[in-house]
Design a protein around this nucleic acid. Structure first.
Length: 408
DNA sequence: TCTGGGGTCCTAGGACCC
DNA sequence: TCTGGGGTCCTAGGACCC
């Protein structure tokens, strides 16, 4: 039996590196990609930052207001997701020269199963070296790579080498490699689980590996068995090239908390429109609509409703989401965030029009309208046309003057 | 410190059916 | 009038990941 050889490729400071490559004037400077800092009062977090910015203590997921305090002279840029996606696609093309077993886990990270590739291309380490060199030569970007017998160990290895990392864990050495690392490195151990583990006196992966499987299962349930395996470097999950999404959603945090019903209504419409457009673009219909609601104190509620028939129509998603919004107790509290998502996705082809009941015949007419809107947007840009009730309401009713993120 | 936006997976209770 | 066990679907919340 040949050992599996898995690569984890992780682009270093991806968004920030793409910006520095696209704009040479930014090279060598602290670049912070994410929310608008608004002079220190911005909401949101850092999506990515250059290593120059990290010297000041800036990290991804740090609140942007804190980043601004730490690094007021940094270059703050909005995220340009489409641009990063283009670059990501080209990097994936490089991966596919080596194997078709490529699993994207985000825009800047992927697993590659190169077990079989070795026969033609040489040992996994050599394949990994060449990948790194090609990404640098062709895209001017730096990738960190971990090489191991499974996904989990490969991922830890690539993280450990950053930046410009290249870490190989030979077969059999997984437990020794993992033992000294903090338990937070384990896949699935976040803030809460880490605290529970520390309470048990478990700080490093090696501490966990000393427990019996049954003991961990007794404490952590099903998850305990998983922890036991990962701590020993056991992980037999396959590299799965692609899978259909389980949900498609959109959400937005307001620039300022609000209780203006008209702002809430228009925001729900805009989110429903975004979700429906993506459903149509990607060929899905959503069977369940979920509304997400966050109060100013950050407590978060969701309300969901399953439809009579799955839909990709903005008007239907909007109406459903509005009904759900009405179910949420407000009691004078302001709203920080609204989100709309569609789940129980079915392929559009799974539900031909003839099979649909009355409910969806109405959908069918609306869909035709919205498809035309799609075409106009494709031709003249997303701003060319928007759903009627976003524009038809006169600004009579004391709408706040600009400044609302959700209104763009 | 004051917490984005995109997701996945798990748990648990209740409705409902046989 | 009291009450089984299994299965499935739905909803809500929470932990976690990038």
């Amino acid at each position: 039996v040949t050992e599996r050889r898995i690569l984890h490729v992780d682009m270093d400071a991806f968004y920030a590196s793409v910006e520095q490559r696209d704009h040479p004037a930014l090279r060598g400077k602290p670049v912070i990609v994410g929310a608008d800092p608004r002079g220190g009062r911005g909401r949101g977090v850092v999506s990515a930052c250059s290593y120059e910015a990290r010297k000041f203590g800036v990290r991804s997921a740090l609140p942007i207001s804190q980043a601004y305090r730490l690094c007021p002279h940094g270059v703050y840029l909005p995220t340009r997701l489409e641009r990063y996606a283009e670059v990501s696609a080209r990097i994936h093309a490089i991966f596919h020269r080596v194997t078709d077993l490529v699993e994207a886990i985000s825009i800047d990270e992927a697993f590659l199963d190169v077990t079989a590739s070795q026969r033609l291309l040489g040992p996994a380490e050599q394949i990994a070296r060449r990948l790194k060199a090609h990404i640098r030569a062709e895209e001017g970007l730096v990738a960190s790579i971990g090489v191991a017998t499974n996904k989990f160990v490969a991922k830890v290895a690539s993280d450990l080498g950053k930046p410009d990392g290249f870490v190989v864990v030979p077969p059999g050495e997984e437990p020794a490699f993992l033992a000294p690392l903090p338990i937070g490195r384990l896949w699935g151990v976040g803030r809460k689980t880490e605290a529970r583990l520390r309470d048990l006196g478990i700080a490093r992966i090696g501490d966990l590996a000393r427990f019996e499987r049954r003991e961990l299962e007794a404490i952590f349930g099903k998850n305990g068995g998983g922890l036991w395996e990962l701590a020993r470097g056991l992980d037999d999950r396959p590299v799965v090239p692609e899978s259909d999404p389980k949900s498609i959603g959109a959400e937005t945090t307001f620039g300022q908390d609000t209780d203006d019903p008209e702002v809430l209504r228009r925001t729900v419409l805009k989110l429903a429109d975004r979700v429906a457009r993506r459903l149509r673009d990607e060929g899905f219909r959503g069977g369940t609509v979920t509304l997400k609601f966050r109060y100013e104190d950050f407590t978060t509620l969701t309300r969901a409703q399953t439809l009579e028939a799955p839909t990709d129509v903005a008007t239907t998603i909007y109406r459903t989401a509005l009904q759900l919004l009405e179910q949420i107790p407000r009691a004078g509290r302001k709203v920080r965030l609204l989100g709309v998502s569609a789940s129980k996705l079915a392929g559009a082809r799974d539900h031909p029009a003839e099979q649909l009941g009355l409910f969806s015949k109405r959908d069918e007419r609306r869909r035709n309208v919205e498809r035309i809107v799609d075409q106009i947007r494709a031709k003249f840009g997303a701003r060319a046309i928007t759903l009627g009730s976003l524009v038809s309401r006169p600004a009579a009713k004391g709408r706040p003057r600009g400044g609302q993120d959700a209104e763009e």
